[in-house]
Amino acid sequence: MAPDFTLYATPDQQISLHEFKGKRLIIAFYPADWSPVCGDQMALYNESLHFLHRNNAQLVGISVDGKWCHLSFSQDRRLHFPLLADFEPKGAVSQLYDAYDERLGECKRVLYILDEEGVIRWNHLSPTGVNPGVDGILEALEAMNNSKK
């Protein structure tokens, strides 16, 4: 079971993991707003939402950036999915998911897929400089579809 958490999604709104029950959830831990690779990764996910939604999946991004930083980044890139701020205490949620790099004080580039009941079904760690793309996520979601049949 994925550990529950509550984080800010906007400056005045928090989201909790259990609110996603009934939907699959992709959690994308990433090192930082504004850095080029993360920008590409989030931009790519933004364009891919249709394919994720088709598989009953929602997406959230998590980094240790603050909620105002996320707001600004999200507006600049016109993101249509929430970025959650694992800001205070710094990296606490990322640590629960083994996605925190203590040396850098940033999240590692880690993906999780949770099923409709909140059980972790897939995860993937990428080298920090590599955008993992969407192919692995789509394959994992489709494997989940097939295992249900």
């Binding site: 990764q41 891919s48 394919f51 993992p132 793309g133 192919d135």
Partner: peptide, 12 residues
């Protein structure tokens, strides 16, 4: 084309 790119691992 776009979907084939996603499935082929295009990330930029």
């Amino acid at each position: 084309d776009f979907e084939s790119g996603l499935r082929s691992g295009v990330n930029a």
